[in-house]
């Protein structure tokens, strides 16, 4: 507790030059001949107690990024460190301990909860795996966690199907905080829920963050939610971060053409429906063969000389943010 200020500043999650690719086809010996390039050189940091939102369209690699961070998707190149320790390099007991420091909440609580286990077992499953607790202890601990997420103690012996979507998501959150993780990865935690229930879950997550100093990585396609929920935001396109920085700066005054398009098309009370020309509709380029130069140039309305060169994420002269566009420097 004496290191209060230090813990705030120190990054809990550090990702550097992460590349994730999956074999798309194999030759007769089973050797991969082509790959799907899902994440292409992502570098990011989330400081302790902070929250980073990742936004982007479906297929941009945001969920793969989350899975690589949590250790569910193997990667060949790059580094993921939790509290300064490399997860993929860790072995045995150390790896198990690192794993306990991070948890994930999935989009659909219907499929992420084992429907044959009672709620107390679901919530205490991570502790059960860690070992060293009797069933009575686990039940008691699950009771505390259930209350912390707004469930009632009498819910503990019921099965998941007896709950509504919002309550199931509360169970998933209770399970995620059971090991006192430093990092919580939230993969579209409210997308499957109605707006009134979404508000309850968002409030709960913000409350848990205040009380427990949790660090969040929120994957979402909902710009309004990210603006509300996160300190920082990173916008992804075709496996790359195209713009990142403080959420109010990036979402209030986007500088990368893709962020501008994304924000213009997000439904909003304040603005009318954009025209078709404004939306710059297009499909994500094929991620088996990555385009040369800027990944966004085919769809970009501002494409100019210089876009053929690969773009790097550079710091903009004004403000604390980065953009992957040579025209964004302004």
């Amino acid at each position: 507790m004496t290191e209060g200020v230090d813990t705030i500043a120190r990054p809990v999650l550090e990702v550097s030059d992460l590349n994730v690719r999956f074999p798309a086809s194999r030759d007769w010996l089973g050797r991969p001949t082509s790959h799907v390039h899902a994440v292409n050189g992502v570098t990011l940091q989330v400081r302790g107690g902070g929250s980073l939102g990742i936004v982007g369209e479906s297929g941009c690699g945001k969920s793969t990024l989350a899975q690589a961070i949590i250790g569910l998707a193997p990667y060949e190149k790059g580094r993921v460190a939790i509290d300064g320790e490399d997860l993929q390099a860790a072995q045995g007991r150390q790896k198990r301990e690192l794993r306990q420091k991070m948890q994930i909440v999935f989009q659909d609580p219907q499929s992420s909860l084992d429907r044959r286990l009672p709620v107390w077992r679901l919530i205490s499953e991570p502790l059960h795996i860690r070992g060293g607790h009797s069933n009575a202890e686990l039940h008691a601990k699950a009771g505390q966690l259930a209350v912390a997420v707004g469930l009632r103690p009498e819910h503990l012996d019921r099965l998941p199907h007896e709950f509504s979507g919002g309550q199931r998501q509360r169970i998933a959150i209770a399970r995620a905080i059971s090991t006192d993780p430093d990092l919580m990865v939230l993969d579209e935690p409210t997308s499957a829920l109605d707006v009134s229930v979404q508000a309850q879950i968002v409030n709960l997550l913000l409350k848990l963050q205040r009380e427990r100093g949790l660090t969040y990585l929120l994957i979402s396609h909902d710009v309004a939610l990210v603006r509300h929920f996160c300190d920082d935001v990173a916008v992804m396109y075709l496996g790359q971060i195209v713009e990142s920085g403080p959420a109010d700066e990036v979402l209030g005054n986007p500088r990368h053409p893709y962020t501008q398009t994304l924000l213009a098309s997000a439904p909003s009370f304040a603005s009318p429906l954009p025209t078709i020309a404004e939306v710059r509709m297009g499909e994500l380029p094929n991620n088996r063969k990555l385009p040369a130069g800027c990944f966004y140039k085919e769809r970009c309305g501002k494409a100019a000389a210089g876009c053929e060169a690969p773009q790097v994420l550079q710091r903009l002269s004004d403000g604390a943010r980065h953009a992957r566009c040579h025209l964004a420097q302004g």
């Binding site: 707006v195 508000a199 309850q200 939610l225 109010d248 009370f269």
Partner: peptide
């Protein structure tokens, strides 16, 4: 209860 209409990090009225 929509996040768009509330200041960031403020409690939403569920």
């Amino acid at each position: 209860c929509l996040p768009e209409r509330v200041a960031p990090k403020q409690e939403l009225e569920a």
